[in-house]
Nucleic acid binder design. Structure first.
Lengths: 217, 217, 217, 217
DNA sequence: TATGAATGAGGGTTCATTCAT
DNA sequence: TATGAATGAACCCTCATTCAT
């Protein structure tokens, strides 16, 4: 009889919560490596060290699984950012801390970022999910501006504010992409660069300086 | 299930160039509506009013077809932007015209934009293609800055410049997305908003003003 | 996807016989609602308020479970019918009582009937089971006729008798189906109708009247 | 080089209509042999001498395929029966011809009958389809009765008529099942037997004879 | 007794892609 | 040029069934 020399101690039965995290880890990894459609549930399951039916049992459909990834990564990110902001600091300090936390997160979770902000953008079912998350970010940024403006006795229409915030968030995402693609780049320096783009203009806006299109054009 | 309907009375035998444009039109439409993977060659062929083998004969693989779309749309966009910039104008005027052209293009080709900048981001095979195109844009923006800096006898390290340009391009893309999603928004106003974000800060940078992280942090 | 809800506070440790009946109740319900294949052991277990392994421990395989349902329902039905017939009554009275009992049973156990006579018919493994049960019914009906015929000094070949009985049973099943689908219908009236179909012809046959195909045809 | 001695002349590309019939033939065969769920699209495709995607392309989903079978078989059957009935004949002659045609059809298409009247009964999605077809049959039978009654200056309530017809149809189906299971049985004799069950009672009903439940019961 | 955890196996469905006409 | 016919290859998903506790 062939002796079965098993080196691995035969994986035990783990409680649901643990397995779910393992699955999400694997899913984020595979989704980010292959893209949503090219990723196969087989690969995810294998990578999680579990059989496919378990994935379905715990996290549902491939689409639902992807959304679960989205949510987990987004929640983590928002938590990181929220933890860094101190409402009592002056506006630029708050922005700086927020950005540092943001880029720090992206640098530490390049996979998660890829899932979150690259894959989700394309396909209709996720675009809305992503839009919702980005909206939260936009709101935070817009809120910061509004706060700073009021502190200076100034005010800007809500839509206007939102659009500016939208642009800044976009700039941030873009740099985050850049960061995710440059493994050697330091998150903190990236944050500084972003401040140079965002704050210098913002400070002007806060002081009431605006740019207007040339009249004759 | 294939419906057994007789197709349109047939405008047969068009010259190749025309057919190819029809196909690309259809492809852009379908890709933008469904996303790359959810789009089926069947739907594209049908929408182009042509049979599937023709699509393969003229434009090749689904992937190649998508890339063909990318190229056509990118070329159109670059052409539009390039046509708007006059190298003799002052920096802010050039930026303003470029942005106006850019948002005008996006407003007029929302489908194309969606294919170009949303779908392509996710899946590895296209990400590189897209990156190349964006690099060209970044280069243009960075070039503008460099030009303006030199005119003022100043200089910034190339990487630094690139990163800032990257951020601005990101902000622009973000607003373009916003524009693509708000059919009622006016491209020109969006361009103005973008100027307020980009130029006010940029002008500072051009004047040598920089933001630095607090020392004690 | 498995919902993570805590189940009912648990009426644990019931004696086996009780549990088995609960399971059979649930099984009959689910089988009749979904059909054999569409029914899942999960749903049955949940509906019985018990975990799946218990179902397997007590009633075995899905197929065995279905057969157990068949048997229980058939036994109940035969018991009901047998309890209604009094061998000393004249033939039409016996038939009438039997039918009344039969339709009464169907009306009271529409689920069970559905399992018994609708699901089982289709799939090979159960068709034989069902055939056996129906054979018992046919035999009873044929027996009644034979008895009545002999009482009149007449006789019919066994096969002939069986076929006629078979037809009558089919008519009964058909009306039972009709009854199962019309919740407002009264079992007793259905039985009367069945008598009008069955007995009027039967009485003729008992009296030696037969129908013959036209010679020239 | 191995010569490829192919005896079959390599199946040609057949027009859609032909292939569809081949597929339906195969489907009816497999469905009747295995039952709906146990039947696999693979087996059907193979049996039809074609690849699976063609089945999907032409006839759609497994469910749709089954329904297509139902419809084809039902249409054939109704055509056969309708072709046999001559409205000018007396009632019993019409019934006789109809039944002979019916049992003849079942005898000649045992597979089709099995699909039609056995499989469909169980699962919800098909039960309705089947019910509709059976309703047409019931209507025909009821119509015949109504016609004969009016010819005798008599009348019965529509529901009453329908229920009786329902029972007769059930009896017919039951004998058809019996016939399908007894390969050696002759359809014509079965039809004669059915007449003995159906007509003798029916004739009584037509003459106004009815059975009533005993008053004291 | 009772159950959460786990899986092998298989089926339906879709799609990009290519012949043969 | 143009297309209907045809397919190989995957992939998602489900389910009956069994351990290990």
């Amino acid at each position: 009889m062939l002796a079965r020399v098993s080196s691995t101690p035969s994986f035990k039965r783990l409680p649901r919560a643990v397995r779910e995290q393992q699955m999400l880890d694997a899913a984020v990894k595979v989704f980010s490596r292959r893209g949503f459609h090219a990723a196969s549930m087989d690969e995810i399951a294998e990578d999680a060290g579990i059989s496919k039916p378990m994935v379905y049992a715990y996290l549902g459909t491939k689409e639902e699984l992807f959304i679960a990834c989205l949510h987990r990564e987004a929640a983590r990110m928002m938590l990181t950012i929220a933890g860094a902001a101190d409402p009592d600091l002056p506006a630029d300090q708050r922005l700086w801390r927020g950005l540092r936390a943001f880029f720090g997160f992206v640098g530490a979770h390049r996979d998660g970022w890829a899932v979150l902000y690259r894959q989700a953008r394309g396909s209709p079912p996720f675009a809305t999910e992503l839009a919702a998350m980005r909206a939260r970010l936009v709101e935070v940024v817009a809120g910061m501006f509004d706060h700073a403006l009021r502190a200076r006795g100034r005010e800007i229409a809500a839509t206007e504010l939102e659009v500016v915030a939208y642009a800044l968030v976009g700039a941030g995402e873009s740099l985050a992409d850049w960061l995710a693609d440059h493994p050697e780049a330091e998150p903190e320096r990236t944050a500084t660069r972003m401040m140079n783009v965002a704050w210098l203009g913002a400070a002007q806006l806060l002081d009431g300086v605006t740019w207007r299109p040339p009249a004759d054009d």
